[in-house]
Amino acid sequence: MAMDTVIDMADTFGVGKQVHEQEVTKALSREDDSQTVGAPFVDAPRMVCRDVNVYYGEKQAISNVSLDVAEHEVLAMIGPSGCGKSTFLRCLNRMNDTVDICRVTGEILLDGRNIYDKSVDVVPLRAQVGMVFQKPNPFPKSIFENVAYGPKIHGLTNSRFELQDIVEDSLKKAGLWDEVSDRLDQPGTGLSGGQQQRLCIARAVAVRPEVILMDEPCSALDPIATATVEDLITELREHYTIVIVTHNMQQAARISQRTAYFHLGRLIEVNPTDQVFTNPRHRLTEDYITGRFG
């Protein structure tokens, strides 16, 4: 009787063990699934992000994103709406600080220094990591004042001449100089949408940042203006490191060296752009770029 019971029990345990093992393998594979596919890390990175989590109140918007940004590269971030790519972008220069309920954990290093460290002042950080927004948002000032705004507040110049030089230089870099050189005193809001966006890029460039973050910079522009801005991004890569969020996969393919695919707050895949678009390693990436969803 007793023996039987023991054997029964052993059987039960054995079965139970098998079930347990199955569950563990499943869980492991799920864990594998949550790990980023591809090459998120590079040698000599400019920015290093490790285990970044972002919460809006109770809701988690980004989970465990680890990613490097190399020097002088254009890193494109793609993914369906609400996947957290803009949120992640705004973490890189702490723009999320302006949102009260937003909380960021993990590490984001710029040149080896954690930008979320208490000792870091966000003001010089944002001068170092500039930002261009989705909707062109020129200040209600003249074209000249728009570009001169950053250099003025950071005291980059000692004289009017230097300031004029910076403004001219920035507008040239943004490919806007020829169009506006004769009307620098006109309001920036009077420009066309594409010109306004290039003005915003000039404005960001004028502060001499090292990294420029772009949050869907072309989504409000027509194809011609988009082409101009894309050319501009390619040129800017010589001097700056650029992280760009885009909904337009062709755009990502045209201008970026590496592409990161986000899905539901997770970073699914990071690989060289060619590879992501020709031979995606992860099923979700493939589904997205082949247009099965998103």
């Binding site: 003001v123 944002r126 170092q128 927004f133 909707k135 948002n137």
Partner: peptide, 12 residues
């Protein structure tokens, strides 16, 4: 968006 633009340039 104007505030963001200004903060994004490193303005206090």
């Amino acid at each position: 968006s104007l505030r963001d633009g200004s903060y994004g340039l490193g303005a206090t």
